[in-house]
Structure formats: C-alpha cells, structure tokens
Design a protein around this nucleic acid. Structure first.
Lengths: 335, 335
DNA sequence: TGTATGTTTGAGAGCGCTCTCAGGAGGAGC
DNA sequence: GCTCCTCCTGAGAGCGCTCTCAAACATACA
C-alpha cells in the first residue's frame, strides 16, 4: 500500500508533482491522469493532512466554539440544533470540525489552541454582551463567523436573526389580542438576544400606547428562571407574558398553573424559539420560530465561502423568523 | 513577534534544537533555559501544530464519532451528556477534538478522514449490533475507545455499563412489588443496549417464575415509539412496564394516561437512564441511573491513557448504575 | 524555417518542527 | 597529564506535501 506521494509517483512512473496535480486538479494530460488514477485506485492512498497543512497553510478544519455555561450547552436544544446544522454543512463540504464547549475553556486556553495554525476558520457564538473571547478571536485575524452579534460586531461576518423585530411582532400579537398588562420575562441579563428582545417588547408597548416598563422580570433562558420570574409577574397582575425563550415559557406555564390561573384565558403566554416541545405543551405554545439548524448551516456555509474568497469582505446574514400562533394565546384555535 | 522556532533561536542566541528542548522538556542547563523562557515570554510564540504533527506523528487531536441517526443525536440528552463529558476531560488535558455527528457521514467518508493521519485516537459509540464503521475503525490500527460494546468487542478498549444486570435489577424491583404481568418496551432493535436490557428483563422474569416472553413490545428509544408500544402492552393487560429508556417511558406515560389508567396503581412504570426530566415527570419516574457525562469523561481519559502507554493493552471499564426508585412504581413514597 | 504561444512535466525549494548524532566542555579517576 | 564519562548543545536530516520555475515539447503564426 502506497503511503506517500513519492510512492505513487514511482508506481505510476511520473513525478510527485504530477501526482499532486492529479489529486488536486492541476492540468495534466488525459493519458497521464488515467495512469495515475489507476494507481490511485489500487493503492487506497490517503494524503497526510499534516503535511498538506504544513505545505499549504490550510488544514480543512474549522473550529466551533459554543461559548456558554457548560450546563446550558445542552439543557437547551438550541445549541444542539446549532451544532447539528454546522456539522451538516461541514461534512457536506468535507471539512473537519474541532469543537470547544462551554466556558470552562478560558479565553487563554482557547486563544492558544486557535492560534496553533491548525484552524482555517472559526464559528463562535457571540451572544454575550461583553465577551473577550470573541474580541480576541476577531482580532486574531483568523476568519471568523459569529452566531449572533453584538453592537461592536456590525463589521464582522455573522449569522443572526432580528431579535428586536421578532420580539416586537410577538408582543404586537399580544397587544392585538386586547391584552393591556403584558409582562416580559427577559433572557440572560448579559445576552444580546435578551436585551434585543426586551427592546422589541418595549417598542411594541410604546407604539401601542401602553406603559413600556414595569412589568419586566428577569429570566435566564431556563425553565427554573421562568418559573420564578412568572410568579412575580402574576403577583403584578399581568394578563399576558412574553418569554424570551420557550424554556422560560415552559417554566412560566408551570407557575401560572400553580397559581391557579388559566392559559390563555387569564394569562396569554408566548415564548421564543419554537423548540420541538413547544407544540407539545398544554396548551401548545405561541412562539417565534427560528430555524436553529438553519442558522448553524448558514454559519458553516458562510465561513466556507469566506475561506474560499476572503476578498469578498464580511458576510452578514439575518435569517427570518416566523410567528407561530397556538392556543397559549388564542384559546379558540382549533387544535 | 516570533513565529517559528528559528526566530526564537536567533532571539535567544541558541539553536533551534535547544529551544525545542526547552519547550518539550529536554535537558537544558538552567541559564540557557531561563534565557529561552524569557524570550518565549515576550514573544507570545505558538508552535505550529501541523509542523509538529508532521515531524512527530502526533497531533494532540482525537476524533469523536457519534454514530447514530442524526435526529437522535440530540433529541436525547444521552449524546449531549456524552459529548459534554468527553469535552470536559479532553480540554482538561489540552487535547483537541474533532467531531463527527450522525450517520450521514458514511463509513467511507469517515474512514477517509480518520486515516488522514490527523487523529491520534478515536472515541466512537458502539451500540449498533452490526456496525461496519466501528469494525473499520478497530481494524484501522488507530487507538480507539468504544462507548458501549458489541460481543465482538470484548477485546477492545471500551467504557460501558452492565445493561443486562441493570435491567434485571429494575425488573426485579417490579417483581418485588408483586406485579405479575410485567411488560417491556425494548430499545432499538439493532442496538446492543436494547438487546441486553431485554435479556436482563427476561432473566429476571425467569428467575421469578414468570413467563419470560409475550409481553414485549418493540420500541426505538424515542417517546413516540414508547407511546405506540405502550398502547399495545396496555391492551395486553400489563400491570407494569419496564422501558428501555426514559424517553420511551415518557411516551409510555402519555399512553397509559390516555388509556385512562393510573401510574403506578394500575400500571407501574420504570425507565432507564435517569435523564434530567425523569424526576420532573408526574409521577416522578423510577429508573436506572447511569452517569452519562461520567461515561464520556471516562472514555476520554481511557483514550488518553491508551495513547500515553499503548503497551498497557486494551482498557475495559464498566461503570456502575443505580436503581432510583420514585413514585412511578411506588406510589406511597413521600414526594 | 524561425519566432511566439501554450501545454505538460519534473526538479527542487521550502513549510516548521522533532530527533538523532556527534562534538565540545567539564569533572572524575588513574 | 591522560583517558573515560557525563552533560549540554548545534548541525542537519528528515516528516509528506504544495507550489514555483523552467525545461521540454507541441502547436500556431509569420
């Protein structure tokens, strides 16, 4: 079994350079090409990635950094969906992927690994308002695509949704239902998406002539957080709650029920994400659908394109969201 | 900023070899070492992994292959937990990890990527009875640790639990409760864990003098599968069901409730895994706890040790499980 | 026939690192 | 003072690949 290009060259009676051309698509005469291909077929040759990487400066491997608290990474199907989408796109293009999960990998560690020259590019979640890791990555010069983006990232390549507009739309829906004491359970205090959703909520209230403050309780994207926050809002006498995530809404739903209130009769409830379980809740949850796997796929594609033609400049993609109305806000909907 | 060993060598007035010794722990005189360390500090040097890999034949990167249907990978927190554990251990030891998810990556593709000489070792799930990928990996000569193991893998390195004994124990629990028509919803038909759990279930019935057949319905580890299978068992008049996974049990719980039966009064229900939601179900689910993250961590540690001292031979680890009794089988337990 | 143009090929110079090998320095033992 | 060891260091040979450059050959045009 041939192990190196030189072996192949000898076997097919041409030079190493020619074999390399056949493999990488250089210009070679048909006969020569066929000769080499034959040998290639019989030898089951595999190029050595390390050598290729060293010589070409490209590795065919991209890094993926899910920079969130470890226990959040998979408690939520959000990150799982992202990862699935990224993997999809990447394997489709025969690119490898190295993964870093959680925030246990400190900036330092990451910076080290990433600047080892092993990674062609990086996909990183950028939802934390003040994230030195993302800053470091961006200034490192390694091609980077963000999932989400902070204010400061407006000149970076990213894939995101319009959280603010989406939140505004879903709050509009609540307003349209005639609710006047609409509460909001926020996302993590330090998350961009959380802040944007809150802003959208406020904007909607303002446009509707409702007091845009007051009925806000802080959440953290978890069901537990949602439960506690909802309990407070219920005391405040809300007649609707817009939660910054479906998980939060699931917690809120429990709280509402435990308080003896009905959804949507007493309190209309809306989430955000449209995770799989949203339609399985009782009542099914009105929510803002975002195509999470699609975001992952797009991020990978985005990065791949960026690597292919760096001169194209940063690529910014806002993916659409979709308001999904279910019985948690509109009780009379047919099941 | 110094980029290569030669730059460092020049800056510190020694040879490249000496710098390499300082970095990799060769014998160097204290003064020389200090000189180099000083330079190292100021230059923020990062070794080039590709070059190191090429020269040493080691990459510091291991592959992780979750070889299951893509949609299963994260629908279930099982794989997420595994991944989290693996990541934990790996980053702790400063090893990188490349990930392949789902079965969309065909044996061929994988084989290609894996034999590129980029991976020091591989962790792969081995729960499918007939899995050419695992066979290929094992015969490839790349150090491999399996998560789970088939009969044929008894000479490989693996981390697993004793599914059969665990299933037997949980069925014993049901028997001990006085149930006599104990049904079982299996795991995926082609999964080793599924078969083992079924075997354990049967063994328990046999020992109890109950007919060890008949009341078995095929599941697939999903809630949907559990729902359908449970519906059949209910018709068969079971008074207990042992499900091969918690997800399955969640589905079964719905089915039982929809059939107007009570848990555990009419039908005692037990799962397997002790996923986070098991204790949140109503009633809380009796189940067999396995430390999923622990399995992932152990697999990574196992592989790391294997790489360190290959002469140690295969390392087989069976992690303990724990029967967690909750109200789904024993109604009078205090909450 | 001579020159210009294009195509195919091989030689060879790296990419940045590891590791072996041998030379030089310094101390111990005779 | 000599040899023998030990310890530290530098020179240099790869690792397997990519890519440039120029030679070799073929084709086209004047």
């Amino acid at each position: 079994m041939a192990r190196t290009l030189d072996d192949l060259a000898e076997l097919s009676g041409v030079s190493r350079a020619t074999v390399s051309r056949v493999i990488n698509g250089g210009s070679v005469s048909p006969e020569t090409r066929q000769k080499v291909l034959d040998v290639l077929e019989t030898t089951n040759y595999r190029p050595n990635l390390a050598a290729r990487n060293l010589a070409s400066g490209k590795s065919g491997v991209v890094g993926v950094v899910m920079h969130v608290a470890a226990q959040l990474t998979f408690s939520d199907n959000y990150f799982a969906g992202l990862l699935t989408g990224i993997c999809d796109s990447l394997t489709e293009h025969a690119a490898g992927m190295m993964l870093w999960l959680g925030n246990r990998t400190k900036e330092e560690t990451l910076d080290q690994i990433l600047s080892m020259g092993m990674l062609d590019g990086i996909i990183v979640t950028a939802d934390t308002v003040d994230d030195p890791l993302v800053d470091g990555l961006r200034s490192s010069g390694v091609p980077t695509v963000l999932i989400g983006h902070r204010r400061a990232d407006s000149d970076a390549s990213y894939v995101d949704i319009d959280s603010e507009a989406s939140a505004e739309a879903i709050t509009d829906h609540l307003v349209g239902l005639g609710r006047t004491r609409i509460g909001h359970i926020t996302g993590r205090r330090d998350s961009v998406s959380g802040r944007d959703r809150k802003a959208g909520y406020r904007q909607s209230l303002r446009r509707a002539g409702l007091p845009p403050g007051g009925l806000i309780a802080e959440g953290d994207y978890t069901a537990e957080g949602g439960y506690k926050a909802a309990a407070r809002l219920i005391e405040d006498g809300v007649d609707a709650i817009f939660c910054a995530s479906d998980n939060t809404a699931a917690g809120a739903l429990d709280a509402i029920r435990n308080a003896g209130r009905r959804v949507p009769d007493d309190i209309a409830l809306a989430g955000f994400d449209d995770l799989a379980f949203a339609s399985e809740l009782d009542p099914p949850l009105t929510t803002m659908r975002q195509d999470i796997e699609g975001i992952g796929q797009e991020a990978a594609r985005n990065l791949l394109r960026l690597l292919e033609r760096p001169e194209g400049g940063p690529r910014r993609v806002l993916l659409p969201t979709e308001l999904v109305i279910r019985q948690s806000t509109v009780g009379w909907l047919s099941g």
